[in-house]
Nucleic acid binder design. Structure first.
Length: 528
RNA sequence: AGGGUUGUCGCCAAGCGGUAAGGCACAGGGUUUUGAUCCCUGCAUUCCAAGGUUCGAAUCCUUGCAGCCCUGCCA
């Protein structure tokens, strides 16, 4: 995790905390209005690893200040995903909505200082008064209400005597400020809505810009990490800490570039659209880079963490190629995954000079110490249809008429005869084998280049396999064939202990809840 | 009267005045009973551009240019 624990953010942390690095407190503050994806994972990992690295603390906090979009379902989904990723927040689980009382006190504080006022302007008028990028805004006609009147009005807002949208509480800053965020921002709005945590106790809800710095301050967050789009909001963040906050803590906001990945979709809006238009099966669709999708596809938390660390943290906004994610998936899976033979497009081969059957021993992995297994060899087997060519090009190392190839872990065979149906389609191959080429016998009289995976017709197990491709094409359009179901023939049943296996020349697969096998990532040798 | 912010290889990304790390991708070669893995090798005389300061600049200064974010009672 060296990129995560050594970057421009850690420079700030070291500068700010000096000797007291273990006083670092970070937080992951999602709004419970959607499901987490790999971009959120970057934030969770950054905050979580930083706290771990410096011996500090990591807070899980729901930024639930807008009940109209939020629900307990999302809360539970998020908690589940964060734990799955491996960040156990223990008892450090917080809700911004539990701070509503403190937010209210801080608002009173602001009003008493003459730095906030109750405004009667409609949403539309607020917009008009705000001005534009190049022109200053103008003051609200309600801006000069007395402190007493503001106090009275704000209390009435809280008591619920006004309707939604009728009044707001606004900070009194500067309507001519070049940063539009600073032009008397609304800090409380009226919304008579049920809240998933505070029920109907409140009908005024604080806005993000106001609530967030206070949430951080209340929790003694030292470094509040967020994405680049909040750079404009930082002066406001600091303004509220300086003027509204009634405590001592001084959290610091630092922004970093969020993650985007090629050939995939991460935006909440786009994700929702895919789901609502039924382009995907749901938020756990294995093609999605949601944490649920990644998990159902078979990715492990370790893969995601390694990938996120490799991408690094910076302020430049770019798009990481999905190939980097795939690289780490292969790199990690190869160390712990057994490889089996599986045929996706079977072509029958009859070994004419072979009778009976025998037990062969195959290594479970050529890349890790994972033991060996027994495989039964018989006269009639299946090979991959693409492993045979009647008229092979020069660099084709596999089976062709008169060419000798090795059956993985078994014997060398030569193709003697091709059998076709009336339409000319190849339906079967007749081959002969050479007994002295048996695997492990030390045979080296001839160099045999090609090695084919195979399954015995008699012992093969049929299993549904989901071949998963990129969600998007190169040009950004939806890939219509991003998932293809196939019946694969596998050399043996896949047991519960091997929930992830490698199929030679195809890729790494994961046994999902439907007992089907999802392609996690294809091998570089795979050919589609 | 606009403001903020970023520009280092096809993609990420180190670098913080002493002469361009690393990973992915790609291309060669070797090993191999998975065309995988593994192992070598190559891949920015140049850092958005142009000037300037300096013995020395991706790093400092000046001026441009380009991208991204900001005018929700969203976060």
């Amino acid at each position: 995790m060296d990129n995560i624990t050594n970057n421009f953010i850690t420079d700030f942390i070291k500068e700010d905390l000096g000797e007291n690095l273990n006083s670092l407190i970070t937080r992951f503050p999602p709004e419970p209005n959607g499901h987490l994806h790999i971009g959120h994972a970057k934030s969770i990992i950054l905050n979580g690893e930083l706290a771990k690295h410096f011996g500090g603390k990591f807070n899980m906090r729901f930024d639930d200040t807008n009940p109209s979009k939020e629900s307990v379902e999302f809360v539970n989904s998020i908690l589940e995903d964060v734990k799955w990723l491996g960040y156990d927040y223990g008892d450090r689980l917080f809700y911004a909505s539990n701070y509503f009382e403190t937010f209210y006190e801080c608002a009173l504080n602001l009003i008493n200082k003459g730095l906030a006022f109750v405004c009667d302007l409609t949403g539309e008028q607020v917009h008009e008064y705000r001005g534009t990028f190049t022109e200053p805004g103008k003051n609200s006609p309600f801006r000069e209400r007395s402190i007493e009147e503001n106090l009275k009005l704000f209390k009435e807002m809280k008591e619920g005597i006004y309707k939604d949208g009728e009044k707001t509480l606004r900070a009194k800053i500067d309507m001519a400020h070049p940063n539009i965020v600073m032009r008397d921002p609304v800090i409380y709005r009226i919304a008579h809505i049920h809240h998933h945590n505070t029920s109907d106790n409140w009908c005024i809800y604080p806005m993000y810009d106001y609530a967030h710095p206070l949430e951080d301050a209340i929790e003694n967050i030292t470094h509040s990490l967020c994405s680049l789009e909040f750079e404009n909001n930082r002066p406001l963040y600091n303004w509220f800490i300086e003027h509204a906050w009634i405590g001592e803590s001084k959290p610091r906001q630092i922004e970093f570039g969020k993650l985007s990945i090629s050939k995939s979709i991460l935006g909440k809006r786009h994700l929702n659209k895919l789901v609502s238009e039924k382009k995907v099966q749901g938020f756990a669709d294995p093609r999605l880079l949601t944490l649920k999708g990644l998990r159902s596809r078979g990715y492990t938390p370790e893969i995601i963490k390694t990938f996120v660390n490799e991408v690094g943290i910076s302020k430049a906004d770019g798009t990481v190629e999905i190939e980097l994610l795939e690289h780490h998936a292969r790199d990690i899976l190869k160390k712990e995954t057994k490889s089996l033979m599986a045929v996706l497009d079977p072509l029958k081969v009859v070994i004419t000079n072979y009778e009976g059957e025998e037990e062969l021993e195959l290594e479970n992995s050529s890349e890790a110490e994972l033991g060996s297994r027994k495989v039964l060899f018989t006269k009639e087997i299946y090979i991959e249809a693409s492993d045979f060519m009647e008229n092979p090009p020069k660099k084709f190392f596999r089976l062709a008429p008169g060419v000798e190839v090795r059956l993985k872990g078994a014997y060398a065979i030569v193709c003697e005869e091709i059998i076709k149906d009336s339409s000319g389609k190849i339906t079967e191959l007749r081959c002969t084998y050479d007994p002295q080429t048996k695997s492990g016998s030390g045979f080296n009289a001839r160099k045999i280049k090609g090695v084919l995976h195979w399954v015995s017709e008699k012992y093969a197990v049929k299993k549904t396999v989901n071949l998963i491709d990129y969600l998007l094409n190169e040009d950004g359009s939806l890939n219509e064939n991003s998932i293809v179901k196939k019946e694969a023939l596998i050399e043996k049943e896949i047991t519960a202990e091997d929930e992830r296996v490698q199929f030679m020349r195809h890729g790494y697969f994961y046994k999902n809840e439907e007992e089907e096998l999802n392609l996690i990532v294809s091998l570089k040798s795979s050919f589609k």
